[in-house]
Write a protein that binds this DNA or RNA. Structure first.
Lengths: 203, 203
DNA sequence: AAAATATTTAATCAAATGATTAAATATTTT
DNA sequence: AAAATATTTAATCATTTGATTAAATATTTT
């Protein structure tokens, strides 16, 4: 059998296709993406795509699983860290999200819009319920402000972090250059935790 | 010519098709939507769809123009109202948005995701720049807090209002029933202006 | 090197899908 | 009512697109 080299090539070509699929799916969405686009983006033959992954659908599932993990995987470790304070968690989540999203700006809109057009299949992959009920974060919040509904608080935190990326196609023209957009988001790394603390301390 | 009755039927059938297109496009997105789905949803023949609107693309443009107007048209009149205070504007925008979005929950994700997959054609239809630079709202904010960047402030306002709808497919399972989701959003009509005022008064 | 196995491609298929056509039916005008 | 016009449909076309096949090439094992 062709083992050593096979594995090497496998990885290389398979990864190339996966990466290309990620780019094309994320940019166009499942329905607008053509398998030929993906093959071209990967610099390979169309048949090869079906040789490695059985179908467009299968390839999409793999890409989507990675993306969901990337978008929501940031949360769990921070929310459940017993060593950090509530304030530190707000800072950490914001910094992690904005750093990551500056690298992958259309991740949120891609994941959320695909979930919308196929909720029964995708929505359950995000195990948000646990985090929002049993996490250390929720307990810390309850101790400090038992009158604040943790769900509202988390929606605000995620909204301030994710929304500017979801709305990027609309905001970009307002801001002009890509660079100025970036500056705004970097500013928010400090601002968002401050606003969130405001909600904790007053109101 | 068949004028009177023609116009009546025109309206009726044309509107039926447009409404059906709105439903199908909004639910599935352009790429995943089939013209046959739309025809079926409208209860008419496929050919009739092409008789009234030349193509899927043309029909989509019409639906999209309506949706963009619906999503962003709420803003301009309120932001430019010289008769209301800044605080009143925050309340008005929040109430308008949440009332409207409870009726059309997937409007934001639809519009934003279609803009993303076709920015060159759609992004410029939203004339956000003017509102965010010359509006009465921005002037009032500058008078009260010249140190606050109005763009950050508006992103926060829109994020708190729109994000829970953009993320609805993910939040819904957390909340359980549709009814509880609705309750949360109704609560936010009072909460969001309060949080925004907090940012104005402190920080 | 020969055999076995894995990888890649060009060519092709079959189904889905947007669009058209020609004919039938309904409505309006004269 | 007849003619003209508008509306609707069934059938069909042409293209796109996801997928397959059979053959060619490369790689690994023996």
């Amino acid at each position: 059998m062709a083992k050593a080299k096979k594995t090497q090539l496998d990885q290389s070509t398979e990864e190339k296709i996966k990466a290309a699929a990620g780019i094309v799916f994320t940019k166009k969405g499942y329905g607008n993406a053509r398998t030929r686009d993906i093959a071209e983006e990967a610099g390979i033959n169309l048949a090869l795509l079906n040789y490695y992954f059985r179908s467009k659908e299968k390839l999409f599932q793999i890409v989507m699983a990675e993306r969901i993990e990337k978008l929501f995987g940031v949360l769990a470790p921070v929310l459940n860290d017993a060593e950090t304070t509530l304030d530190e968690k707000l800072e950490k989540i914001t910094e992690n999200y904005i750093d990551m999203l500056l690298e992958h700006p259309d991740l949120p809109i891609f994941v959320l819009s695909e979930i919308r057009s196929n909720p029964e299949q995708l929505a359950n992959r995000v195990q948000a319920p646990k985090l929002l009920k049993d996490s250390v974060f929720v307990k810390q919040l309850a101790e400090r402000r038992s009158d604040i509904n943790p769900l509202h608080f988390i929606i605000n935190l995620l909204g301030m972090n994710l929304f500017p990326f979801v709305a990027k196609p609309v905001l970009q023209p307002v801001l002009g250059s890509e660079d100025f957009y970036r500056q705004m988001m970097v500013q928010r790394k400090k601002l968002i935790p401050a606003w969130m603390k405001l909600m904790l301390d007053h109101g």
